[in-house]
Nucleic acid binder design. Sequence first.
DNA 1: GTCTATACTGGGATAGAC
DNA 2: GTCTATCCCAGTATAGAC
Lengths: 212, 212
Amino acid sequence: MDAVSETRQKLIDGAVETIRTHGISGVSARTIATTAGVNQALVFYHFGSVHDLLSEACMVHTQATVTAYQPRLDKVTTLQELLATGRELHAGQAEIGNVKVLAQLLAGSQNDPELAKATGAALALWTTAVEQVLVRVMAGSPVKDLLDIGGLARAVSAGFVGLELFEGVDPQGARQALDTLDQLAVLVEVVDDLGPVARRAFRAKVKRVADR
Amino acid sequence: MDAVSETRQKLIDGAVETIRTHGISGVSARTIATTAGVNQALVFYHFGSVHDLLSEACMVHTQATVTAYQPRLDKVTTLQELLATGRELHAGQAEIGNVKVLAQLLAGSQNDPELAKATGAALALWTTAVEQVLVRVMAGSPVKDLLDIGGLARAVSAGFVGLELFEGVDPQGARQALDTLDQLAVLVEVVDDLGPVARRAFRAKVKRVADR
DNA sequence: GTCTATACTGGGATAGAC
DNA sequence: GTCTATCCCAGTATAGAC
């Protein structure tokens, strides 16, 4: 039935769960194997090393989560809704905290080029999804031509990772930050809704300041 | 001369250096002691545990970096300059990457309440400094009353941490994101510069959307 | 092909030397 | 008060059993 070994799957799930509960610094072949309920040495048999298991788990889990959230993202029509979907993803029990896992892997990738390759690819799945939403949401906006949407998507993704980590040390502050971003999203919408006169003045100002 | 033991200082410096070069998952009493050039057991004599050393090092290093950057922050008059100072801080060799160190400690804090207390306090030093700048920069802005500056300061700090981690796996993408934030800062300035008519229309729109 | 027993290295912590 | 020698456990990895 299953093309992929059952033990392999157990180890991948165990790796994700271990990162969630123990963080990147608590990850080892032993802790993962204990969580997965298999012998520790199987990590090396099936994946060659802990790094390689983490890389694989990172991709599989992120792929699954992005796919699961795609329908919701497809329905997003405003920046506020995008933010709300992000908060949902952040708090959601369903896909068990992919952002949390990614944040830990990202931290671990800073001094590990091998892992960096995998987390970079996983993060790209998110930024691509976010970019698609932004292109759609900002299609009719005058702001569209003034901002690099790809760069904005990357900033949004990075911001969510940062907020995830922030929340771990200051939950109240993180909520406060997210609420403020909500206000900011409203502001952008408002700029979109300016009348034609103000809009023209707006564009002119942008050109002037940008050429500074 | 020195009120604080020389070995203590060596260990604190060694801890910071080890986090920078090996990341949070490469930190141990042994690696720190090797970097510091002292016996491994001295970590436990002087600080009781590795966690406690990290907590202390986190506070000392962040305090020193914030103090070193305060004069530069005091000179900031626009959002773009704030962003530029952030980029400088990020790349700067001088205070040897406090953001990088904080990002790693933040990741390690997610599953360690003790460490979370210290990194939370350290991060608060940054958010307070950023908030002061924002209050000053936005003093004359119509946007001021529509945004929670404290929340914005937290979002900015979290964003920088996120971008630091992002850079480790995708340096080009991180630069792209920062460039886009620069464009966004211009946009906000532009809104500030709107004439009185557009400004009034703007406020009205904000109220309408916000009450949604 | 899958897994266990086992070897070896590095990590946290302390008892006790100086 | 300061530091070293030493203990024991957790970590990676492999040789070889099934």
